[in-house]
């Protein structure tokens, strides 16, 4: 009677022998696959390098192209802006990291230099406009998206830069470590709609606030936070508040 592998002590040896052969074969197969992957990766990398070096200028200069490029990167799970720790070569290749960090520095510059008059809150569009002015480029070259992304790269610094959505499609950038409560965000949104001017009545009629609540929110912003200014010569109400971050400054 012949069983597969046979019987007796010799069968143990034979089995060990075949297991070793299988293991060898598997190692060999894995190695081939890894080699193959390495080749593919190298190809991918060189293709990307080629793409990056070819389109480097367009990426830096053309906002539409940059947007498309960012989308492509996020869809394939590559972060072109990842700092020196991860994906460093990628940022290096594009010079994109530099561009973004440089923009970050300019954002900080604008936020700090206007803080005295706006209390550390600036409208996103206004920030974009002032950064563009600082860079000496025409509007549209730096987009809101670029600025928001740069602000994200500032986060590890712990300076408290944050983009806040105040509704009505308006976004503001806060550059002070200070909590904006919900009422203040509402006041900012209404002031945006009014070109900066805000009075108790607007909050009472449009938002259904009590007069007390409106007054408290406005007085806190005026006295405690320095986020708005007082105008004691208002034609309609005698007293109005102006939110400098909702006003457009030309200088």
């Amino acid at each position: 009677m012949h069983r597969l592998g046979g019987v007796g002590l010799a069968a143990f040896d034979r089995q060990r022998e075949s297991q070793r052969s299988f293991a060898e074969l598997s190692t060999e197969l894995s190695k081939t696959q890894i080699d193959h992957l390495h080749t593919q990766l190298t190809q991918f990398r060189s293709a990307l390098t080629h793409f990056a070096s070819t389109h480097r200028d367009s990426i830096r200069k053309d906002p539409t192209f940059r947007h498309a490029f960012q989308q492509m990167c996020s869809s394939i799970g590559v972060d072109p802006l990842a700092g020196p720790r991860k994906g460093g070569w990628w940022a290096e290749m594009l010079g994109m990291g530099d561009w973004q960090h440089e923009l970050g520095v300019q954002i900080v510059d604008v936020c700090v230099s206007t803080r005295e008059r706006n209390g550390g809150v600036i409208e996103l569009g206004e920030l974009v406009r002032m950064v563009s002015k600082l860079r000496g480029v025409e509007s549209g070259v730096v987009t809101e998206e670029d600025v928001v992304r740069s602000i994200k790269t500032l986060q590890p610094l712990g300076a408290g830069y944050e983009v806040i959505d105040v509704g009505n499609g308006k976004k503001i950038v806060r550059s002070v470590v200070k909590e904006l409560d919900e009422d203040q965000a509402t006041v900012l949104a209404e002031a945006q709609a009014e070109g900066g001017r805000i009075v108790e009545e607007i909050l009472v009629t449009r938002r259904g606030w009590t007069r007390e609540r409106a007054r408290t929110a406005l007085e806190n912003m005026l006295l405690r936070d320095g986020l708005c200014w007082l105008d004691a010569q208002d034609e309609q109400h005698g007293k109005a508040y102006w939110v400098p971050s909702a006003m457009s400054w030309d200088e």
């Binding site: 008059r117 070109g195 900066g196 001017r197 200014w229 007082l230 105008d231 004691a232 010569q233 208002d234 109005a240 102006w242 400098p244 006003m247 457009s248 400054w249 030309d250 200088e251």
Partner: peptide
């Protein structure tokens, strides 16, 4: 609202903050 600089009849360039309503109130 847009705050702009303004040149007066005497040729002086007023800064944009001069166009802010609240600038004329003691804060």
């Amino acid at each position: 609202m847009q705050l702009t600089t303004h040149t007066t009849p005497s040729g002086f360039l007023l800064p944009s903050i001069h166009a802010a309503h609240a600038f004329f109130t003691e804060q």
